[in-house]
């Protein structure tokens, strides 16, 4: 590829990204969205967060224990910490620290 072709690729990526992120705002201008869309938008965060958790784990493999155990253990700890203390900092730091330690040991 020439340099100009690479720049064109970057422009394509920029345009597609803006288009995808902006499409709902473009289609439903001035907040004139049908009530189903607004209703869904309000319920979407919980569904989207669950989707993102799984999206983050899509590359996990189940070959050896070392490949899936750190993720599983860190997720469990994060949820348990959050259910007990309900402090974001504690849950995220605890889960991430355990994950990093397990990665280094295993």
């Amino acid at each position: 590829m020439t340099q100009w072709q690479m720049i064109l690729y970057i422009c394509i990526a920029v345009l597609v990204t803006i288009l995808v992120r902006g499409l709902p705002f473009l289609v439903f201008r001035n907040g004139q969205a049908p009530s189903f869309i607004l209703w869904t938008g309000k319920r979407l965060p919980a569904a989207a967060m669950a989707m993102l958790v799984i999206y983050c784990m899509k590359d996990i493999s189940f070959g050896t224990v070392g490949e899936w155990m750190p993720t599983l253990a860190a997720c469990v700890l994060t949820v348990v910490l959050h259910a007990s203390f309900r402090k974001m900092v504690i849950s995220i730091c605890g889960g991430t620290a355990l994950y990093m330690i397990l990665l280094h040991i295993l």
């Binding site: 965060p45 919980a46 967060m49 669950a50 993102l52 958790v53 983050c56 784990m57 750190p70 993720t71 860190a74 997720c75 994060t78 949820v79 959050h82 259910a83 309900r86 974001m88 849950s91 995220i92 889960g95 991430t96 994950y99 990093m100 397990l102 990665l103 280094h104």
Partner: peptide, 23 residues
Amino acid sequence: LRGIDFSMTALFLVIVTEQTMDA
């Protein structure tokens, strides 16, 4: 630093937990 990006998975997970507990 390997594994520190788990903080973003943890962020999503914490929000799911939070919303589920509210529910």
